[in-house]
Amino acid sequence: MEWVETTAKTVDEAKELALDKLGVDETDTEFEILEQPKQGLFGRVRGEARVRARVTPKSPRAKEERRDRKRRPAKTKPEADAVTATVSDSEEAPRSGGRKVGPTQGGANGRGRNGGGSEAGATRKRPVERPRAEDAPMEDVANSVQEFLDGLTAAFGIDTPVTLETDDESIMAHIEGKHGLLLGPKARTLDAIQELTRVTAQRAAPSSVRIKVDVGGYREARREALASFAQQAADRAMAEGIEVVLEPMNSADRKVIHDALTEVAGVSTRSAGNDPSRRVVVVPDGTGDDNGVDGSDVEDSSGDDHAS
């Protein structure tokens, strides 16, 4: 992610979120304020502050070739932004996903629409004042990831292949073999490795490429387990006609649940609460609460977490 874009009630909060997403200190970051918050009646926030930030590039780069891919014509009218502007939970704010134009769901449950809403970032498609560094080529990002992880496994004294799976906008790095040492309790070590991989790649080759790291197929297995858990929740919601509230999960896990149920007819999903107790709610159709009007399901279009 070259630039990340965030929204929050105040400019400062939006900056904080952006820094969280970039995982760097303020001193390494440059900001652009895209929109000041608008106050509504009784202090209600009508329009949120929007901020754009990036890690200050270490060296001048002039990669032009990816520009076209990243600057797609807006698919939605700027008004779509009004929808996302109602998001009250600042956690959703990172909307860098909007630049990715994910092949996300059809708007059946409101989530697709959000994807479009983020795209309204194109409202400021007009040239920004400052020259904008473009994404590093995928090849550079991949090399940086490969080099980092090869070096890491070597330092660990673990002789195992690291293979990368890449497409246009993401890299999945697989560390082969069941190395519990690299996984750690509750995958904390793996998550830390992933975080450091992202930071390293972001600094060596800034881009909006999404980077994930897996060891011994852990994430895939976890995803399958979560998806099957999601299906059970959906079955229950439909059978009993009630909303099923799941346990608190991090944003990556919530995304798996949202994604797993996007294609399941008869239910929709939204998220409720604030991190760290934010949870997915599985809503059976027909309860009149399946449109995510509160914007609470915005998160799933923004790709992975926090990076982060």
Binding site: D25, G184, T189, I193, L196
Partner: peptide
């Protein structure tokens, strides 16, 4: 320093974990 420590110590914390 800012790079090894990171925002709210996130990078430092990840380094310590690994």
């Amino acid at each position: 320093m800012g790079r090894v420590i990171g925002r709210r110590g996130r990078v430092a914390s990840a380094i310590r974990t690994v």
